[in-house]
Amino acid sequence: MTQVPLAEGLFTWPAADPALIAGRASDGSLTFPYRSHRLVGGAREELEKVELPRRGTLWTFTTQLFRPTSPPYAGDDTEETFEGFTVGYVELPGALRVEARLTEPDPAKLRIGQEMELRIVPLGRTKDGDTTMIYAFAPVQEEASP
């Protein structure tokens, strides 16, 4: 069984330290997900591919307790097998805020301002049986004080 990204060009993968891929315009602004061109100051401009920081802070979050509509939802679950999840915005320092699934499903274990780190996790299966991989953010485990 093969693992495949949900969409090409979203993140570097497979990689030991995967990163999300954004586009940087000449004015320094970033666009995620990456696209090759964007209007900047009224002119169409080619964007530079850049890797976003792997860590950031949880800016806000909520829970998704019902199965998203299809399309475009790419999960291989059904109404009966669907399990709720958390989703949030993670603020990446010096970059932008990214909407993503969170790996921690229990909202009681999340807090605004919590440090988060990028992960690549399974979502579902393609019609060929491959595992679809998506990006998500996981809470960084805080070290206990001595």
Score class of each variant (00 low, 15 high):
Q3D: 11
Q3F: 07
V4L: 04
V4M: 06
P5C: 04
P5G: 08
L6N: 09
E8D: 12
G9H: 10
L10S: 05
F11I: 03
T12R: 15
W13H: 06
W13D: 00
P14T: 04
A16M: 03
A19S: 14
A19T: 14
L20E: 05
I21S: 00
I21P: 00
A22S: 04
A22P: 03
G23W: 02
R24H: 08
A25Y: 00
S26H: 07
D27S: 06
T31R: 00
T31C: 06
F32K: 10
P33Y: 01
P33F: 02
Y34I: 01
Y34L: 02
R35T: 00
R38N: 14
G41E: 06
G41A: 13
G42M: 11
A43K: 15
A43F: 07
E45C: 09
E45P: 04
E46D: 14
E48Y: 06
E48F: 08
E48W: 12
E48K: 07
R54S: 06
G56M: 13
G56T: 05
G56Q: 11
T57F: 15
W59Q: 15
F61R: 01
F61E: 00
T63K: 05
Q64M: 11
Q64D: 06
Q64L: 08
L65Q: 07
L65S: 06
F66T: 13
F66G: 07
P68E: 06
T69G: 05
S70G: 12
S70A: 14
P71K: 13
P71V: 09
P71A: 05
P72Q: 07
P72D: 07
Y73K: 04
Y73I: 00
G75A: 09
G75L: 02
D76F: 12
D77N: 08
D77M: 08
D77L: 09
T78H: 13
T78K: 12
F82P: 08
E83D: 07
G84M: 05
F85R: 11
T86Y: 02
G88K: 00
E91A: 10
E91P: 11
E91G: 08
P93S: 09
G94T: 14
A95Q: 12
A95I: 03
V98I: 15
V98H: 08
E99N: 10
A100N: 11
R101Q: 14
R101K: 09
L102G: 01
L102A: 04
P105I: 05
P105W: 05
P105M: 02
D106P: 01
D106G: 03
D106C: 06
P107R: 07
P107Q: 03
A108G: 05
A108S: 10
L110P: 01
I112V: 04
G113R: 13
G113C: 13
G113Q: 14
Q114F: 02
Q114K: 11
E115D: 15
E115M: 13
L118A: 01
L118P: 00
R119L: 08
I120D: 01
V121T: 14
L123E: 09
L123V: 00
G124F: 11
R125P: 04
R125L: 12
K127S: 15
D128A: 14
G129N: 06
D130A: 14
D130T: 09
D130C: 07
M133C: 10
M133L: 12
Y135A: 05
A136N: 01
A136I: 13
A136D: 02
V140T: 15
Q141S: 11
E143G: 15
E143F: 07
A144W: 09
S145A: 10
